[in-house]
């Protein structure tokens, strides 16, 4: 099944790529793979990549989505970049706490706070 709307939209603010999920679910294997590919290409675009993932639209995600995010985080680290997660709804935030991934990711309450948390 082909999706007419891309699963993420990307805007740039200075040297920061802001990625917003357009679907309220990050569940489908194909959907997750497509998002993963997009994020990998953003990370690989430059050295010291700065990536902000905005979860404001996301109501559901699966462990496969968490795996994809960990993969992106590892890739960002190897390129000495910075990854921030923001606007995560309470129910989804609980998933990050249960899996203790809140220790792995830098999670900020809002996009603004995430933007100011990047270091030069």
């Amino acid at each position: 099944m082909s999706e007419s709307i891309p699963p993420v939209s990307v805007v740039q603010q200075k040297d920061i790529r802001i990625v917003e999920f357009t679907n309220n679910k990050i569940l489908d294997e194909a959907n997750i793979a497509e998002i993963g590919q997009t994020l990998i290409s953003l990370v690989d675009e430059r050295d010291y990549p700065k990536l902000l993932l905005d979860f404001s639209a996301v109501d559901h995600l699966s462990s496969a989505a968490l795996g994809m995010l960990i993969n992106i985080n590892n890739r960002v680290k190897t390129k000495n970049g910075q990854l921030r997660l923001a606007n995560i709804k309470q129910q989804i935030l609980e998933v990050f706490f249960l899996t203790k991934l809140n220790k792995l990711f830098r999670i900020l309450p809002t996009r603004e706070e995430a933007l100011t948390s990047f270091t030069q």
Binding site: S63, G67, I70, N71, L98, T99, K100, L101, K103, L104
Partner: peptide, 11 residues
């Protein structure tokens, strides 16, 4: 914690 799989059963 940095492995990409193994969280389904936990959830």
């Amino acid at each position: 914690i940095e492995k990409c799989s193994g969280r389904g059963i936990l959830l």
